[in-house]
Write a protein that binds this DNA or RNA. Structure first.
Lengths: 182, 182
DNA sequence: TTTAATGTACCGACCGGACGGTACAGTAAT
DNA sequence: ATTACTGTACCGTCCGGTCGGTACATTAAA
């Protein structure tokens, strides 16, 4: 892995294809072509399509972890407010044109089993941190609302205007940092 | 369409396959076999796979409309509380082992364009009714939370226990029928 | 009243193309 | 010598869709 640029280029290309054209169009040939790597090169890095999908999901989760760390650095007074951190993760993720979590889409389409890692990760975050501190119902509802918005984007089903989205996100963050009743 | 039993059998089979084995396994042959119809018979009713997917989505939306009507009959005092009706739709939908909205999954995997009808339908319900009456933020958050839970089930990503799900659903309904702050 | 024609619903063998994956010889940097 | 590829040719399977037929019910002319 002396020149691991190709690995990232391949993963970027795969994400881009899924985001733009749908999971069904994410063929090995298409990914190779788009990433500027030969098919042989692709197979060198990811011996099967499943390996590629798994790597996409792994990278997605790594990125989310990085995001959490950055946010904790940037907002030190919210360090231990896991719900607020998560709200900011969703908020920041929504600013990108295409959610990086398209990997989930591709995996679900190809082989739903691949998502078990992601499920466990979410479960960990949700149960161990977010809900532990405060009112379960309140935390759960706020988290699920942010998740719902994210899924709407991911599935390209969003019926919200940019302004509506932003407003709701700000409200969710406000509620996550505050203590008002829903 | 004098004896449309086959049509329904085919749609049922397609849903079952997507729900149990994933969208990628929903091949025409598999659907035909499962529905007890020959491939030729399937193609007679649905000339292309896209037509089948479209029919699945159409039926999904029709069913949701029926559900709304039933709920309005069953809970006449909530007739005009669109948010509460929608909460009950989500609640009732979650009671089935597999959400009927697996059609969405199949469509997204095959051809994301097919979901535009569903998006418009959601938009209509959301903007015209749910949000019209009360506090936008509150309604939106409650709706999105219910949607988030639904998507978790749909994508087989749910990390919530049965009890947690039920509790949250009841809380959402309570909030939708009441006036408390979140 | 027999007969011919028409339409509906369905069967299942088959075809062509796409796709995941293999194989392998060569190359260029480290 | 190892690593990280390129390039190309190829293979077998799977899948969407085609096509020629069948069975049967209804209608309509002779």
């Amino acid at each position: 892995m002396a020149r691991p640029d190709s690995r990232h280029a391949i993963l970027d290309a795969a994400e881009a294809i899924v985001g733009q054209s749908g999971a069904a169009r994410m063929t090995l040939d298409a990914v190779a072509k788009r990433s500027g790597v030969s098919k042989g090169g692709l197979i060198y890095h990811f011996p099967t399509k499943e390996a590629l999908l798994q790597a996409m999901i792994d990278r997605m989760m790594e990125r989310a972890d990085l995001m959490r760390e950055e946010i904790r650095k940037k907002f030190p007074d919210e360090r231990s407010n896991h719900l607020a951190v998560e709200m900011r993760v969703f908020q920041q993720g929504a600013e990108q044109k295409r959610p990086q979590s398209v990997a989930l889409l591709a995996a679900i389409a190809a082989n739903p089993d691949l998502t078990s890692g992601a499920r466990e990760e979410m479960s960990r975050h949700f149960n161990a941190h977010i809900v532990s501190g405060g009112d379960f119902h309140r935390s759960a509802i706020l988290f699920l609302a942010a998740l719902g918005m994210h899924f709407l984007d991911l599935l390209n089903l969003s019926f919200l205007t940019k302004e509506q989205k932003q407003e709701i996100q700000e409200e969710l963050l406000r509620l996550a940092t505050g203590n008002e009743g829903i």
